[in-house]
Amino acid sequence: MVIRYCALQWTFPVFFYDPEAARAMGMPGTIIPGPLKVGLLYRAVDEWLGGAGWVRQVRAAHRRPDPTNDPIDIAGRVARVYEEDGKRRADLELAIINQEGQPSVRGFAVVEFH
């Protein structure tokens, strides 16, 4: 997934695929690209919607690196449901949780229901 992402963006920072280079930069090893993680948040919200709406916004604040091949969990909760511009929308609080149970990413999304 990481290499496919690098090909999509046509950018190949060494800390995504070279463990020694990543450690030299103070990272635990090769890491999951941040932009890939915002896409994973988008995917989680999109799948949660299940066609009942669409994702207007997704944001990610990266707190900790996630080593490649380490499983991650995505958690979320509906923070607010409201009407805006005649549309029913919801704000979601999101997080990517690493294997230590720590949030590596704090996220936020806005969805609009059909």
Binding site: L8, Q9, W10, T11, M25, G26, P33, G34, P35, V38, Y42, W54, V55, R56, Q57, V58, R59, A60, A61, H62
Partner: peptide, 26 residues
């Protein structure tokens, strides 16, 4: 983003760089 040639060019003022936040809005 790729087709657009990526984001604005920023000068290298420090030796290392890392993404700390990003977002998509529609």
């Amino acid at each position: 983003e790729t087709e657009n040639g990526g984001t604005s060019r920023i000068p290298d003022l420090m030796p290392n760089s890392l993404l700390i936040a990003n977002q998509w809005e529609f």
